[in-house]
Design a protein around this nucleic acid. Sequence first.
DNA 1: TAGAATTATCTCATATTCGAGATATTTTAA
DNA 2: TTAAAATATCTCGAATATGAGATAATTCTA
Lengths: 142, 142
Amino acid sequence: MEEKCTNQAYLELMQTSKAIQDCIKMEMMNHKINITEFSVLEVLYFKEKQTIQQIGKSILISSGSMTYVIDKLEQKGFIKRIDCPNDRRVIHVVLTENGMNLMEKIMPKHRDLINNMLGDLTDQESQTMIKLLKKVSKRVET
Amino acid sequence: MEEKCTNQAYLELMQTSKAIQDCIKMEMMNHKINITEFSVLEVLYFKEKQTIQQIGKSILISSGSMTYVIDKLEQKGFIKRIDCPNDRRVIHVVLTENGMNLMEKIMPKHRDLINNMLGDLTDQESQTMIKLLKKVSKRVET
DNA sequence: TAGAATTATCTCATATTCGAGATATTTTAA
DNA sequence: TTAAAATATCTCGAATATGAGATAATTCTA
């Protein structure tokens, strides 16, 4: 029997994460936003006020994409840009009233969704998974 | 202390898969192809002859995207379309000589890369990970 | 067997992402 | 203090992904 063409753990890992990703994508479509936009809103929901740079680093997208997504969210009225008086290169971003309302509507359901998807794992299993994934991450980065 | 905003296992899972994804992306840049193109070639490398539809289902992209990526790969000379005589709606795709050569060059290194990334896991750990991920997958799909 | 439904692919317009380079500002260092 | 380096954001063009609808062929069914 020939060796399995690709690492099984690898396949499982990539398929599972994609399935989760797709699930969240669908969830967000209901609110007329995409995953990237949600990620930005999520950062702001927890951090309140962030520079465009900081958000980009959090969610790992390029500066060009940041400008684009921030524009979109501003057009939709969920966030607003605030010029920084101390450093005029910098622009801060915060949720608007609307943005906050949206997030307060979305987040509980979103948390449930995540917890439900990961929810068959016992605490013990969850810890094991985290440990194993960290081991892999460490290896990938180097 | 407030509950952690997002499920840790979830975060770890998504970050790890993204890191792996990025790593493969970089690997493929060396060969002047992107991940989607590689995925198509990989399917053909193992399955020999597939319809456009079948490939699309394997790698989970839309029919519009399939036409695009198949065009690109044909332009690059790695695959060719073959009309199906039995069912004229269908188009089969196979690797060309060039495409096969490319894959024979790429695949060993790619296998190594994957095995290396996942390689810190013992067989036991790998099995555990697979088991846990399957448990999650099952939950996500429903 | 004709018409309806299904299937496979393609076309097209739109959206998103990226990277390179432009611009403006601040910081550093001689 | 001033020139150089670093930083933050934006602009722009290219690449890629999507979904809706078009086209063409096949299959199903009354």
